[in-house]
């Protein structure tokens, strides 16, 4: 563990961005998430870890209502973003998702140019008034995603032509371009090689300055490297949630310990 970061962490603990209370998720007959309570802090990286099928991705998708697109999925309980229930009837998921962005497991750039990929969000949400502003937004998003220097000469090349790591950073730039408050990342590095992984991890650490980041990961090392807080899910339950250092060095629950030491997983 990096001691310097541990100290930094204490300083950064700020206000709560997302509050979840008694969240239940059903997929048809199966009960995928049971009674999850969690507080996600602003300007912090929160990692969800746990064995396959433990519900961590499902829970992540609840946070921007991506589960709405699956017909048989049912969500109960309360999830509050800045104190407002995102499952309230009055809430338009379109508006919600503009504030809670998401990056997926496999890079999924649209079959458009690099520029258009990044400009997509600002355009549909009407965040810019003219082309000059849009150019500015695109550039700043690409810079935030640490991709600008690699693509600035070929903004009109198709996004699908980039390498895997570049594609994933392009997807991050695309998500960042709408300046969301929360950025959800669903195993963003699982389809990438080690070098690209390192670049993306470094990027996540930088993104923390502006956003609240929630990352689902399979790799405990990655959770330890990038996150300040870690939640351990097991069989649909949130088993333990706390400071990353504490989870990895001094887990309270025996199941967490078993997972971390490699006995279950």
């Amino acid at each position: 563990m990096n001691n310097m970061r541990l100290t930094e962490r204490a300083v950064q603990a700020t206000d709560t961005k997302i509050t979840a209370r008694k969240v239940q998720v059903h997929y048809g007959a199966s009960h995928a998430i049971k009674d999850v309570d969690i507080d996600i802090l602003d300007k912090t990286v929160t990692a969800f870890i746990g064995p396959s099928g433990c519900g961590k991705s499902t829970f992540l998708r609840c946070l921007n209502r991506m589960n709405d697109t699956i017909a048989i999925c049912r969500v109960e309980g309360a999830i509050l973003l800045d104190g407002e229930d995102i499952y309230d009837k009055k809430v338009d998921p379109v508006q919600l998702r503009a504030r809670v962005g998401m990056v997926f497991q496999k890079p999924n750039p649209f079959p458009k140019s690099i520029y258009d990929n990044v400009a997509y969000g600002p355009k549909i949400h009407g965040l810019v008034r003219n082309k000059a502003e849009l150019d500015e937004v695109v550039e700043s998003a690409l810079r935030k995603a640490a991709l600008w220097n690699e693509v600035k000469d070929r903004l009109n090349a198709p996004g699908t032509g980039l390498s895997g790591g570049q594609q994933q950073r392009l997807c991050i730039a695309r998500a960042v371009a709408t300046s969301p408050e929360v950025l959800l990342m669903d195993e963003p590095c699982s389809a990438l090689d080690p070098i690209a992984t390192a670049q993306v991890e470094e990027l996540i650490d930088e993104l923390r300055a502006n956003f609240s980041v929630v990352i689902v990961t399979h790799s405990m090392q990655q959770a330890a490297r990038v996150s300040q807080r870690t939640a351990f899910f097991h069989l649909g339950n949130l088993v333990e949630f706390g400071e990353t250092g504490q989870i990895f060095t001094n887990p309270r629950d025996p199941r967490t310990e078993s997972y971390i030491t490699g006995r279950i997983g």
Partner: peptide, 13 residues
């Protein structure tokens, strides 16, 4: 680097 300023307090409701 200027981000586009968005109408500040947006309620989801």
């Amino acid at each position: 680097m200027t981000m586009v300023e968005t109408p500040a307090p947006r309620s989801l409701y």
